[in-house]
Design a protein around this nucleic acid. Sequence first.
DNA 1: GCATAACCGAGACGGTACGTCACGTCTTCGA
DNA 2: TCGAAGACGTGACGTACCGTCTCGGTTATGC
Lengths: 205, 205, 205, 205
Amino acid sequence: MQSRTPASRPGRPRSATADAAILAATREALVELGWSKLTLQDVAMRAGVAKTTLYRRWAGKNELVVDAVAELFDELRLPDAGSLAADIEGVVLQFAALLDRPECRSGLMAVVAESTRDEPLRERIRASVVERQKRLVVEGRSRAQARGELPPESDPEESARTIDLTFDMVAGAVVHRTLVSGKPADGPWIRSFIRVLLLGLSAPA
Amino acid sequence: MQSRTPASRPGRPRSATADAAILAATREALVELGWSKLTLQDVAMRAGVAKTTLYRRWAGKNELVVDAVAELFDELRLPDAGSLAADIEGVVLQFAALLDRPECRSGLMAVVAESTRDEPLRERIRASVVERQKRLVVEGRSRAQARGELPPESDPEESARTIDLTFDMVAGAVVHRTLVSGKPADGPWIRSFIRVLLLGLSAPA
Amino acid sequence: MQSRTPASRPGRPRSATADAAILAATREALVELGWSKLTLQDVAMRAGVAKTTLYRRWAGKNELVVDAVAELFDELRLPDAGSLAADIEGVVLQFAALLDRPECRSGLMAVVAESTRDEPLRERIRASVVERQKRLVVEGRSRAQARGELPPESDPEESARTIDLTFDMVAGAVVHRTLVSGKPADGPWIRSFIRVLLLGLSAPA
Amino acid sequence: MQSRTPASRPGRPRSATADAAILAATREALVELGWSKLTLQDVAMRAGVAKTTLYRRWAGKNELVVDAVAELFDELRLPDAGSLAADIEGVVLQFAALLDRPECRSGLMAVVAESTRDEPLRERIRASVVERQKRLVVEGRSRAQARGELPPESDPEESARTIDLTFDMVAGAVVHRTLVSGKPADGPWIRSFIRVLLLGLSAPA
DNA sequence: GCATAACCGAGACGGTACGTCACGTCTTCGA
DNA sequence: TCGAAGACGTGACGTACCGTCTCGGTTATGC
């Protein structure tokens, strides 16, 4: 099988499929081994790739896992269920399901832990996971404001603060419930959580 | 009648001072190296203790770190500041300060991450950190109920659920704010967080 | 001053049965584990004795094994089979059988090897094994001289040299055959060996 | 047609100089520490090589020491001193000198001792030391037969038995004299030994 | 007859080496 | 020119024994 652009560069062209194979192999290894027993050696073997290829593209295990996990979060969708409460319930259920997948549980908290002593890693997480998914809060809020369920924005700076607070509260509570308390973030729990949250958020500032 | 007096066991008893020295050395190593670069070798050296002594008392790095970090949480106190909001603000400030200490940041999330694949470890965390500190929520609630700031308990089961929810929301939000969003859980943020929280919690069920 | 009367010492006397149990346990461990995997820990356990008891009586593994093996050599007997050749054949067969017992094979060469860097150990081996068994050569010679099979002694110094040479040749050849060449020192081999040996020894000086 | 050319294997080839450095370091360590205190850790350090490199090439301490010692034996030469007795005296003197070198004393008996419980090790010793040096006996015999000092071979099987016997008697006696009796295998002893040996061997079967 | 003193078992202690594993780098060959 | 294969130095792992040291408890003699 000849390459697609034979005249573009001399030498052997880079394998186009390698990146996807590596990230998939990383998730597979996370499922079977967890973060602390995951090995670049092993990932390379699963991906059918040499160890050196990994080191050419990622600085280390942490960066690789962030990229592998970040892809999972793009699957989240904000449903339009008719009300703010129902919308949130929908997305939180998806989030809880995501946190139940072992490739996510194992990897996410581990890289967050590593990021406490590695500022570039924290930035990478923020950029490719946190800020990227804040879209869900933004969209949910504007949809609720259109419905009149939330007061319209006054100050844009105040608005950003509220979005941040909402995101920290939702993500934090679900993560804590799931990974620390070790209890399921199921329908009843989510509904009681949303009740408390919305009562607070919908009150006039 | 207590039959489990360890003094009755034959053989040389374990050094009483070693435990404290080891836990202190662990925290010191967490500050300087972080969880992933922390080595039992190194901890033993800092504590002036042989590596084998560590393995005699703890199953591994995870268990050791849990115990070292758990001691920090016992420093938390619920102040009596006159109102529920002020009480919470006080304790959350302490919690935020704790999460700012590198021995806590590095260690806590890491063992939580490990616990996603290690049920006994999760139980150890729950018992020596989570359940142990739930006392703060319980005391804060009963104090607020005495003041009339919260409705009195009706169903004890319902009460337990509320305590759990409160704990997950408070701890989760502060942790997420501090370690994931990477922004300070300072006075203004805490006050806006408490406003939302208390509006939701104080509403009649 | 009474130093050689252990009965007069105050305090609890050493257990008399312990020594025998320890040496037997040592041989048992040699059979099962061999010298290099033999552990004082393990010997103590087998003998139903504390590790400290071993250290009170022997300086270390080497000394213990020498004593355990030396006892085996006292079982050797010089048979009276009517001729020098037959006498030697009888004792060499016994010696070969001894070297086939694993507690002897494993232990003997190992302590000889250790003794190359431990002069006191070499002396202990010499005293409790080599010189002690030289009795067999001495008795065999004098019996053969009485029969007229060997020339009578002239110079006592010359005689000592011949005894030493004979012992080195007999013991050396059997050990080398058995342990290095790894072939059995059986009847045919022994007879051809004795033929060569006696032709040389019986010739006039 | 040689297909086992190691040059054709993929990947980085093994360092050629490492083997020699490791064996030399092993002998050096044998001189200074003896077999039982010799450490692969230490050998690796002396050779300027990582411990893992040792384990990649040798199964353990025993195999390494066999190879290190075997090289020493290739230095033995059979001199042509004009007569069988003088030839033997020459080579036995060399052998005795070899057994006086601490790297040989310490190592040789130790691996022989280990080989009593390790059949592959015994084979390795046999192949790389015993059988390899039997050349000296073979050459000495044929030279003596050419001179008419020994009867010519009749039966080739009988001849093999005689070679084996000779080797066991010579090597065994010298080793026993040197390492067990702890007395020097010097000129006078060697000559009296050879007298006995040759009288026996030169007699007609 | 009862204190004294050496013994005993048990087992924790500071060490040291083990043999393995993964790291991240390097060298070689083949495509 | 890139990638696979794999050897390399490094360093931590968790285990096993070492030889020493407390412990509480057990015999013997000798005052």
